[in-house]
Amino acid sequence: MRFLVYFCAGLAGGVLGGMGMGGGCVLIPILTVLCGVPQHMAQSVNLLTFLPMAAVSLRVHAKNGLLDTRGVLWTIVPATLLSVLGGLFVQGIPGGALRVGFGVFLCLLSLYQLASGVRQLRGGQQAGGQQSGRKQQNSEQ
């Protein structure tokens, strides 16, 4: 039963992650709030399980010609270094405090998402309806 619950949590996070929408932002709260997994453990499982999922998604995206690698190393190298430092930093933080911090992070992120979603909707209307804009994008690929 435990296995099935965790599997469903992974499925939900995976669908969003495969679309590049930060599946971890959904997976981590599902695991901590609904399944009672400790915050650090949920973050660890999110990082580790993202790896094979990302490899699979990347293959699909590469086949669809969606990868654009110009200058990405400028972001990858500093991000990798800081992610190690950030990971080391939270090893000493209590789970409860980390969970509250994560909640604040999620709220900020969702407000930003909301703003960009509304912007997209408005932009789509100006361009003569979103569906037509979408079709154009797809035919460009």
């Binding site: 992974g10 995976g14 969003l16 399980t49 990302a54």
Partner: peptide, 13 residues
């Protein structure tokens, strides 16, 4: 469990 779920969901996503 999560890994298998994420992998299946990721491919669909």
């Amino acid at each position: 469990a999560v890994g298998i779920g994420v992998l299946a969901g990721g491919a669909a996503g």
